[in-house]
């Protein structure tokens, strides 16, 4: 599915009549993603990464510009149509009333279930299927508050998969996870996206994860214009310094006959 953003920008509060609104992004955002492609969004805290994701899928309204899916503005889609196409994975958090993992994943079928009816055994079977495809079927009957953060994040990904989305949006899915669980999450996302030809946008704090996902990168910062492009063009030492105010060294390593790129922050060399 083709996803475009045309001249998107946002500001908080109401527009004052005379003064120019102070936009969150230095320049209007433009981007284009094809199916099976992943866009990683990088930027410091408070630069507007989460806001971008929310505007992108209509959870917040762009104050300017629009998002288009298959060439059509998302405002022209009905809520039900839109959320059948879009899967949104928020940051995992504990809840007041914890449901079982299966119950939680079944909620992902809501847009297919009529307002006045209850989920059927078919919906539960679909939820079970999604849990299997993610590899956490054994957690189905455990409480969401009793499983680990990484497992809950996987369950939330499964919850979007039961609706068979064409566009997958993830807000820092690997944050607060240890390095092994990060690996599971990243591999799962990449596998699903490539297998099912999903278009995917993912917020992350880790430059190396952007290299892993490949395809495209977007960088945002309060003081710099938003840039979008091919990963290798955007992920440069100069850009990291401009957007994150940190010196890094881009290094290439050979592993199993393939070349891998990663970034090493300079401050590491100071430690002696």
């Amino acid at each position: 599915m083709k996803l475009e953003v045309r001249d998107g920008n946002f500001y908080y509060g109401k527009k004052k009549k005379k003064t120019k609104p102070s936009f969150l992004y230095q320049n209007p955002i433009n981007l284009e993603l094809c199916e099976g492609e992943i866009l990683s969004v990088l930027g410091p805290n408070g630069a507007g990464k989460t806001t971008f994701l929310k505007c992108l899928i209509g959870l917040k309204d762009w104050k300017q510009g629009e998002t288009r899916i298959e060439g059509q503005s998302i405002n022209d889609y009905s809520a039900r149509e839109l959320w059948k196409l879009v899967g949104y994975v928020p940051q995992a958090s504990k809840m007041a009333f914890s449901y079982s993992v299966l119950e939680m994943v079944t909620m992902g079928r809501a847009m297919y279930i009529r307002s006045y009816s209850q989920p059927s055994t078919k919906d539960e079977a679909a939820a079970m299927e999604a849990l299997k495809s993610i590899g956490i079927a054994h957690l189905a009957h455990q409480s969401c508050n009793s499983i680990s953060g990484g497992e809950l994040q996987l369950a939330l990904i499964a919850r979007t998969l039961v609706a068979d989305p064409k566009l997958l949006i993830l807000d820092e899915p690997e944050s607060h996870l240890d390095i092994q669980k990060q690996k599971v999450i990243l591999q799962t996302i990449k596998r699903l996206v490539k297998e099912q030809n999903i278009t995917c946008i993912i917020n992350t704090h880790y430059p190396n994860h952007a290299f892993y996902f490949g395809d495209q990168v977007m960088m945002v910062s309060k003081k710099q214009p938003v840039i979008v492009g091919k990963t290798e063009e955007i992920m440069t030492e100069e850009n990291m310094e401009k957007y994150f105010n940190i010196h890094v060294k881009k290094v290439e390593t050979e592993m199993e006959d393939r070349t891998f790129t990663s970034m090493i922050p300079h401050y590491l060399s100071e430690a002696k």
Partner: peptide, 17 residues
């Protein structure tokens, strides 16, 4: 059943359609 969904955060509930 929908009350389960309402108990999630507002944006989560919206994104479930």
């Amino acid at each position: 059943w929908r009350i389960n969904i309402l108990s999630l955060s507002e944006e989560e509930a919206k994104s479930l359609g």
